[in-house]
């Protein structure tokens, strides 16, 4: 039972990440491949503030969102002039840069030593350290994120985003300053990713740079592509499957020596087959 709680919590965290990234990639059509950076900023904000300054978890999450949004604002200002592959490459570059900061700025992040002892949330004397309570808390955040994402998607703001995806020049003709819109959604998305980061820091009680590499960003991309771009429901289901898949494979009984690599082989083949036969993912409306 505890194991299922554990997996469910991870699924929720990745679902939040997926939703946040989907807004930028699925709705706006920008291939942001550095999202793990914002995930990391949220996680480190919580880890640093709760361990060194004794700040309350929820306050640290707010700080994480602010820090992440701030970084996104600066990064987004540069990114907004690009599109397509260049956008992907530059956002990846920012991921590498932020990862280097996590790894090398020892004074702030303790570098590869990581920050242990991140506490579970506590609010008004209610302690969320038990697995069930934490799961409930995480689920609340997921619900909030989902509602926020849906609100954005269905609003006129969301319609502009989709128009940018379909034909940016056309909508510019109508007088929309697409740079602002692209920046805005990027910042919002970064803030959401930070929420997931704060949750994971508090859940595993430990943060280190290795969780925020480019490969992690790519994993989040895979989740939303599998689930279907611009399908919010798809992002959640995508997280469910892609988080459970390696765990299910753990039981597949590969010979121990190569079990982990075999999982990667299966995972890679899964992606290839998916792209060949169902690129729009499960629920994508975005016909790739």
């Amino acid at each position: 039972m505890d194991y299922i709680l554990h997996l469910a919590t991870l699924v929720i965290i990745y679902a939040i990440l997926g939703l946040s990234l989907n807004l930028v990639v699925g709705y706006t059509g920008l291939l942001a491949s550095g999202h793990a950076a914002f995930y990391g900023i949220g996680a480190y904000s919580t880890a640093i503030l709760t361990t060194s300054l004794g700040v309350n978890f929820f306050a640290s999450m707010a700080a994480g969102i602010a820090a992440s949004a701030g970084a996104a604002f600066l990064i987004g200002a540069v990114l907004s002039r690009f599109d397509g592959d260049y956008y992907a490459l530059v956002s990846l570059g920012f991921n590498v840069i932020i990862y280097s900061v996590f790894l090398n700025w020892h004074g702030l992040t303790r570098g590869p030593l990581g920050i242990p002892g991140v506490p579970r949330p506590a609010l008004f004397g209610m302690d969320f350290s038990s697995g069930v309570f934490f799961l409930a808390l995480a689920a609340c955040f997921l619900a909030l994120t989902f509602l926020a994402a849906r609100f954005v998607a269905r609003s006129s703001f969301g319609r502009v985003l989709k128009s940018i995806r379909e034909d940016e020049k056309a909508i510019q003709v109508f007088g929309y300053n697409t740079v602002y819109f692209k920046l805005a959604i990027f910042v919002i998305s970064a803030g959401m990713a930070a929420v997931a980061g704060s949750l994971v820091a508090s859940y595993i009680n430990f943060v280190d740079p290795s969780s925020f590499t480019v490969m992690e960003s790519v994993f989040i991309l895979a989740i939303i592509i599998f689930g279907g771009l611009s399908s919010l429901k798809g992002s959640v289901i995508g997280a469910l499957v892609l988080v459970l898949l390696p765990e299910a494979l753990r039981f597949a009984g590969f010979p121990q020596a190569i079990a982990a690599q075999m999982r990667h082989v299966v995972y890679g083949l899964f992606l290839v087959v998916l792209m060949l036969y169902r690129p729009q993912g499960l629920f994508g409306e975005f016909k790739l």
Partner: peptide, 8 residues
């Protein structure tokens, strides 16, 4: 994504 799968 397909190339990512091939790479992995």
């Amino acid at each position: 994504v397909a190339s990512l799968g091939v790479f992995t």
